[in-house]
């Protein structure tokens, strides 16, 4: 049987930092209970948490910066000559495409992050708090958008360094990036749903990429679909990722079609309306 030190409340704090029981009693005797945080304030607090996580482990951003750099260099120099006749010509086509692909791939991390939370006990605490149900899910969007924007900026800067000159200038580039980010918010709810259904963060990551790889390659991100067999071309033409890539190219080149942009926004809204409630329900249910 272990020796129990007698708990005298006035015992001085020992140098190895024990709890000061008198102070604990003082701390709990504070009975004033503030009004619960507003929905906006809860969302912003969860955003702050997401930013702190990036601050503490900035290396996690390497993933979203190095991969796009690799893609840009590889596709431009490896396939450019074969696909478009010259690397310069292909860069004009592929850069907006890689912007779309890289940012979309980043959405998988929303699901991975949520699943990582679930494997620990902290979610139980959040779920037992008197806060707006969707706040723990909407808050991380700020951290996510940092990743999206960072990946986008890296790609665009690299493209410009390699000779890419968007016709529509900075305004067009910003508009294209904004459109991709908005679509990514919508898509990320699919992966947060997956994140709540699957057992491990790794499984979420695998499932996410397994879905995104074919969808991205079967789009017009890499090649002009006019060369494809007819059934494949038909699929590629209606693939929302194609429409997003076309709209992003259009915005950067100043030839954007309002209809494409509307479709992209509608798909993003639709995904949010379907998957945000599912995610919220699954999160609450635990």
């Amino acid at each position: 049987m272990s020796v129990t030190p007698t708990a005298s409340p006035s015992r001085p704090a020992d140098p190895t930092q024990a709890a000061d029981l008198e102070a604990v009693r003082r701390a709990i005797s504070t009975t004033a209970r503030p009004a619960p945080a507003s929905p906006l304030s809860s969302v912003l607090t969860f955003s702050w948490r997401a930013m702190l996580k990036i601050k503490h482990v900035p290396e996690q951003l390497l993933d979203v910066t190095i991969t796009p750099v690799m893609f840009v260099l590889m596709f431009t120099y490896l396939f450019g000559g074969a696909v478009a006749g010259s690397t310069a010509a292909y860069l004009d086509y592929i850069l907006p495409g890689i912007l779309v692909m890289s940012v979309l791939f980043t959405t998988v991390y929303s699901g991975v992050g949520l699943n990582t939370d679930l494997t620990r006990g902290v979610v139980d605490r959040f779920r037992s708090l008197p806060i707006w149900r969707s706040a723990p899910l909407l808050g991380p969007m700020l951290g996510d958008s940092v990743r999206y924007v960072l990946a986008g900026v890296v790609i665009i800067v690299l493209g410009v360094a390699l000779g890419y000159r968007p016709e529509a200038g900075i305004g067009g580039v910003v508009a294209a990036l904004a459109l991709v980010v908005v679509f990514s918010f919508g898509l990320s709810w699919v992966f947060t749903t997956l994140g709540l259904l699957m057992r491990t963060p790794m499984a979420v990551m695998n499932a996410g990429f397994m879905a995104l790889f074919p969808l991205t390659f079967l789009s017009n991100v890499f090649v002009d679909p006019a060369t494809l067999p007819a059934p494949l071309e038909a699929f590629v033409d209606v693939n929302p990722i194609s429409i997003l890539a076309t709209a992003a190219r259009g915005l950067m080149e100043g030839t954007a079609v309002g209809g494409d942009i509307a479709v992209v926004l509608a798909v993003a809204l639709g995904l949010t309306l379907v998957f945000l409630p599912i995610t919220t329900h699954l999160y609450r249910r635990g």
Partner: peptide, 14 residues
């Protein structure tokens, strides 16, 4: 109420 879960209910990454 407040809950102290079986797995420590704090955020390890903060």
């Amino acid at each position: 109420v407040s809950l102290t879960g079986q797995l420590a209910s704090v955020d390890e990454d903060l």
